[in-house]
């Protein structure tokens, strides 16, 4: 009986005291900062005398719509990018297709290296303006980090682990699902975070081809020289980007496989 308790005591020493504790410590700062910034902006706008244009642009319903459009664009982009680049990255690390990887990342590089606004205009010439064109542009623009990180993340898994897995009779699919992907998760998610932030930024351009988003606030602010509108649009965009990045960090921490360090 007493030896059993001793053993338990030893185990608690070996495992970190609490996952939640560490999570809180690492990730509590960003929400606090964002809350302060949002509150400050709100108070400042509130204290300012708003004219008609400003009041119309900064209506709660108007803001919610812009944020909603922006989030929708970003979320859809993320889903598509993870599916395309994640799936592609997995395929491009299979032994039979590995040789294709440089071409694929080269292609994705073109998407990212082209100035976003240029890409948007080019695409809208061929595809017309609107939501789906924006989405395609966003995907093309943010596919690279996820693709590259998926490839790097899987390739950095120790070859001997894969050999050991095959050696004890795991199928290639089992090796992928139980060894390669879990061990690549931190690197892949880092790519997804980068893609998210990129997507939030580029989505502000959606307004140029009438796809809405927070960019419309910024553009209105610039065109009509309304500082409050401009600042509100910029602050909301930045907050959204940082929130998503923060969320990505939390998720990445939660999904990080044990036993790595």
């Amino acid at each position: 009986m007493s030896s059993a308790t001793q053993i338990r005591a030893e185990e608690t020493v070996l495992t970190p005291p609490s996952r939640w504790h560490g999570l809180l410590r690492r990730h509590a700062t960003m929400p606090a900062i964002l809350a302060v910034v949002l509150l400050g902006t709100y108070l400042w706008v509130n204290a300012t005398d708003l004219d008609d244009i400003e009041q119309r642009a900064l209506k709660t319903s108007e803001l919610l719509r812009a944020v909603g459009e922006h989030v929708t664009l970003t979320a859809l982009t993320t889903v598509l990018v993870v599916a395309i680049a994640g799936g592609g990255g997995i395929l491009l690390t299979r032994p039979s297709m590995r040789w294709l990887a440089p071409f694929a990342t080269g292609l994705a590089n073109i998407g990212q290296a082209t100035p976003a606004i240029g890409l948007l205009v080019l695409l809208s010439i061929y595809l017309g303006i609107g939501f789906s064109t924006t989405l395609i542009c966003l995907v093309a623009y943010s596919v690279l980090p996820v693709l590259q990180n998926t490839i790097v993340g899987i390739n950095q898994v120790d070859r001997h682990l894969i050999e050991a897995g095959r050696g004890i009779g795991m199928s290639p699919l089992a090796v992928l699902l139980r060894i390669e992907l879990p061990l690549a998760v931190p690197v892949i998610l880092a790519g997804v975070r980068t893609a998210l932030v990129l997507a939030v930024g580029v989505a502000t351009l959606a307004t140029f081809i009438s796809a809405g988003g927070l960019g419309s606030l910024i553009v209105t602010g610039i065109k009509l020289q309304r500082e409050t509108v401009l600042v509100t649009g910029a602050v909301l965009t930045a907050t959204l980007a940082l929130t998503l990045d923060w969320l990505g960090g939390v998720i990445s921490d939660l999904l990080r496989p044990r036993g790595l360090d």
């Binding site: 120790d158 001997h160 682990l161 050999e163 050991a164 897995g165 095959r166 050696g167 004890i168 009779g169 795991m170 199928s171 139980r178 060894i179 879990p182 061990l183 496989p257 044990r258 036993g259 790595l260």
Partner: peptide, 21 residues
């Protein structure tokens, strides 16, 4: 091949224990 390997013990120098398990 996979069935075969499940019936044959396999030990390598690098051990190859899965670090997340």
């Amino acid at each position: 091949g996979n069935d075969l390997r499940r019936q044959i013990g396999y030990v390598i120098q690098q051990v190859g224990l899965f670090p997340h398990m």
